[in-house]
Computed example of a mutant assay.
Amino acid sequence: MSLKPEISWKDFEKIDIRCGTIISINEFEKARNPSYQLEIDFGDLGIKKSAAQITTLYKKEDLVGKQIVAVVNFPKKQIANFFSECLVLGIYGEDVKDVTILTPSLTTKNGLQVG
């Protein structure tokens, strides 16, 4: 895999990455690729929804209460009948369907910024 083009520090500062806790999860049956619909608590930022293609490595019951890291300042994106409001970050495995969610190593307050 090749390295992406270099960005400036100003480019990075535009990305708002926060910690949140998954509070509910549902199967996303209308998605083209197997996905879950997540509701994530970002503290003072409120609750945001996300569609996440993480069904290969994670069962629904293992995700509720899990802290994740997500980009929260993308515009809403419509996927079928669902509006995704943030992007949960993860690491692709050798098979891109095997996504490992990025999580803080210690419990943090929801909504804290990554930097």
Results as ranks from 00 to 15, higher is better:
Ile7Asn: 10
Asp11Tyr: 01
Lys60Gly: 07
Tyr92Cys: 05
Lys30Cys: 00
Lys48Gln: 12
Ser24Ile: 04
Ile91Asp: 03
Ala52Trp: 06
Val114Phe: 14
Glu29Met: 01
Gly93Cys: 04
Val96Ala: 05
Ala51Glu: 00
Gln53Leu: 05
Pro5Val: 13
Cys86Ala: 13
Ala70Arg: 04
Asn73Leu: 02
Lys49Phe: 02
Glu27Leu: 06
Ile91Leu: 08
Ile15Val: 15
Gly46Thr: 12
Ala70Pro: 06
Gln67Gly: 14
Glu29Leu: 04
Lys109Gln: 14
Ser2Lys: 15
Glu6Phe: 13
Ala31Tyr: 00
Ile40Tyr: 11
Asp62Asn: 14
Gly20Lys: 09
Val99Glu: 00
Lys14Pro: 02
Lys49Tyr: 01
Ile91Tyr: 06
Asn26Ser: 02
Leu57Tyr: 01
Leu106Val: 15
Arg18Ser: 09
Phe74Asn: 03
Thr103Ile: 09
Asp95Pro: 01
Gly93Leu: 00
Leu57Trp: 01
Leu106Asp: 15
Ser84Phe: 03
Thr103Tyr: 07
Thr21Asp: 09
Phe82Ser: 01
Asn33Trp: 02
Asn26Ala: 05
Lys76Asn: 12
Val88Tyr: 06
Phe42Lys: 09
Leu3Gln: 13
Gln53Arg: 09
Met1Ser: 11
Ser84Arg: 06
Glu6Leu: 14
Val114Pro: 08
Leu3Glu: 13
Glu13Asn: 10
Gly111Glu: 12
Ala52Gly: 03
Asn26Tyr: 07
Thr21Trp: 05
Ile7Phe: 12
Phe42Val: 14
Ile17Ala: 14
Lys48Gly: 02
Ala51Lys: 00
Ser24His: 12
Gln37Ile: 11
Gly46Ser: 08
Thr55Asn: 04
Phe28Cys: 08
Pro5Lys: 10
Leu57Phe: 05
Ile25Gly: 09
Ala80Pro: 03
Val99Gly: 01
Cys19Ile: 15
Ile54Gly: 03
Asn26Lys: 13
Ile79Glu: 04
Ile54Trp: 06
Leu106Ile: 15
Cys86Trp: 06
Gly90Ser: 06
Glu27Ile: 02
Arg18Tyr: 08
Pro75Tyr: 09
Ile101Met: 11
Val72Cys: 10
Ile79Leu: 10
Asn110Cys: 15
Asp11Lys: 03
Lys109Ile: 14
Gly93Met: 01
Lys59Trp: 04
Asp98Ile: 00
Thr103Phe: 06
Thr107Ile: 11
Val96Met: 07
Asp98Tyr: 00
Glu27Lys: 12
Gly20Ser: 12
Gly20Val: 09
Leu3Ala: 12
Val71Asp: 09
Gly90Arg: 03
Glu13Tyr: 13
Ser24Leu: 02
Ile22Cys: 12
Glu85Gln: 15
Leu45Trp: 04
Ile101His: 10
Lys97Phe: 05
Lys30Trp: 01
Ser105Leu: 15
Phe28Thr: 01
Ile22Asn: 11
Thr21Ile: 10
Leu87Phe: 07
Leu106Glu: 15
Leu57His: 03
